[in-house]
Amino acid sequence: MTVNQASIGATPSRSGFLRRIAVEYGQELIVFSAIIALFIVVSIVNPRFISANNLTTIFAGNAYIAVAAIGMSMVIITGHIDVSVGALIGVLATISGSLAVAGYPIWFAWLAPVLVGMAINSFIGILVAYARIPSIVVTLGAMSILRGGLISVTGGDWITDLPSGFMIAQKRFFDIPAPLIFMVVLTVLAALWMRHTPFGRSLYAIGGNKEAALATGIPIARRTVMVFAIHGAFAGLATILFATQLQVIQSTVPPNLELTIITASVIGGVSILGGTGTVIGSTMAAILFATIGSALIFVNVSAYWLRAVIGLLILATVLADMWRRRAKS
């Protein structure tokens, strides 16, 4: 295994192209190496780990976290944060499921969470950009409001009897689970958009150096609102995967979902100070967590120590990134 790690580290020095990749995507490479290392070790212990079924569980079962982390990464790259996204997904899932059960067309039940997510988050963005309230304050407040509101309105009744056409997360296209396709396509589109469009690149400028961004004529406030709106759309897309996985929707907020999503973004290399990071990294970090969670069960780590080991692995990834940055500078 050490050999494998070393070879991944060593390969880039053989060519300029690879070196550029190593410099530019350093954190992504670390996360990627960690995923590969885990897969190798664990599949030696138990080959069933890399069975098609388990890969589906790891990738498709957690795709909604990766999708939500794309939007979160954009928010964080712009220098903000959103702790209300878990509550938002809970609310959107309930809306989507209720519409589907009430007999609205399926496409409408899928579209609604995206639109409502955009609307709610635009409002958050306006408070952040124009009322100049720090995003953590707005979203802490929004988290309480959404969470309390959800319980008030639904009373906690579960949504059952969902129409079978609604279950997009259970579908397969060309024998590939739909959530996996969602995750890959959205990640690639978002990555290209952030890299190759002026708007996308301006996010880095806003997060990295506000004064400079202002000086170059970037409409910071408007862009901030739009980033939150896009984040809301991704939360809506994540909701579609989240709500259509099972035949029931639990109309409560999944515990600690926001923390999982934020962790995926920042471990994937999105700097919390804004200005750097990619959505490829956050998607890979989401996959890393899913892999760790599954791997530890496969290698029989005592369930009591599971969370400690996960914490240790997260810390190790963070420290490895810092070590890489030092080595670079």
Partner: peptide, 9 residues
Amino acid sequence: MRNTVLTAI
């Protein structure tokens, strides 16, 4: 990266 290896072990 070594940390990752160590923790995996």
